[in-house]
Design a protein around this nucleic acid. Structure first.
Lengths: 190, 190
DNA sequence: GTCTATAATTCGATAGAC
DNA sequence: GTCTATCGAATTATAGAC
């Protein structure tokens, strides 16, 4: 359904919406704020999206799809070394949170605001991304690089990465890559 | 100001508000929903709290104060062994998230909804709690138990713990204490 | 301390002209 | 595809009786 309606215009509006959703949160972002950011009046918004929910769904789909694509791309580039792959996943995750920015943050922090239908429709995307993580973690476990339960380790690592949104200052002295490397270093047994 | 107004009634209302804030989020929780949960009409709410913001501030103060108290208590009980202290902090954190429940979750996930005045007034509480964490992490680092930068490790660990709210099922087979032990095990160098 | 009643505002969404 | 104009519902908060 959404695949048919991916005009460049809609893509641009989705990008602007993501920015506001991160700044204000979905609930506090009004359609009037969205319209103003897009340079149109609030009534015109509903020509592109049937309602506010559909904007959120578009942003979250975009953010998750993008995270999935970048992660796969990074994994392809880095060969088969378990440590390199783990590091690549962590870097890719933070890249989508802080460089590409916004859409993936919305996907992580506003997922609960999706109505049940949209959530069901998009859950396979999120599951695919998390499966990628579990695979990489699993390989690192088998290589004796880290230790623990694969599901718990995946969720702890993702939690640690996701929460950086709440405290990391991109204008500080550390790069997102620094953070990723530090996190990987923290869980590696030496 | 709030210190003067800690009637048992207000405490009970704050507890009920915390529950709704976790279920629905602060923005989507209306004063009518709050009033109904408390068994009164919406107008009566403003006899106890000057506005909706003050309810949020009360919940967050309660949640952070409680987390701080439980953490200190746990640390007192567990002696001076760095590993035991680290484990105690992780367990205490998850205990306030899942057993005591609600108020600490609101403090962590809805902090940004505080107005600047309330945020400034409460930040010393949050800082005190995080300082407790940095101290325990620092001791574990010095003991060679874990490795990394003390601030980054603290934030990664807290992020991993906080994010459990989004996926942990208290009715599942694992206890919160299991999670805490697994997380500590994950970062310990052996 | 709780009620009823309502003020004042803001929200999401629609209709129809251009 | 955007505009103007506006509807209807929902929201926070207040006023005054009991």
């Amino acid at each position: 359904m959404n695949v048919m309606n991916e005009s460049p215009r809609r893509k641009e509006l989705t990008r602007l919406a993501a920015q506001l959703f991160v700044q204000e949160g979905f609930d506090r972002t009004t359609v009037r704020m969205l319209a103003q950011e897009m340079g149109i009046k609030s009534g015109s918004l509903f020509h592109h999206f049937k309602d506010k929910q559909e904007i959120l769904a578009a942003v979250i789909e975009e953010g998750t799809q993008n995270a999935l694509a970048i992660a796969r791309q990074s994994l392809k580039r880095c060969g088969s070394d378990p440590e390199a792959r783990l590091r690549a996943m962590a870097r890719a995750h933070l890249e989508t949170l802080f460089a590409d920015r916004n859409a993936h943050v919305v996907a992580l922090f506003e997922w609960r605001r999706l109505d049940p239908a949209a959530s069901a429709h998009l859950s396979h995307l999120r599951d695919a991304y998390e499966a990628l993580w579990v695979d990489v973690i699993d390989a690192a476990l088998n290589a004796g690089l880290i230790h623990g339960d694969r599901f718990l380790v995946s969720r702890f690592v993702l939690g640690a990465l996701n929460w950086t949104v709440r405290w990391y200052d991109p204008n500080g002295s550390r790069t997102p890559d620094d953070l990723a490397d530090e996190l990987v270093g923290m869980i590696m047994a030496r």
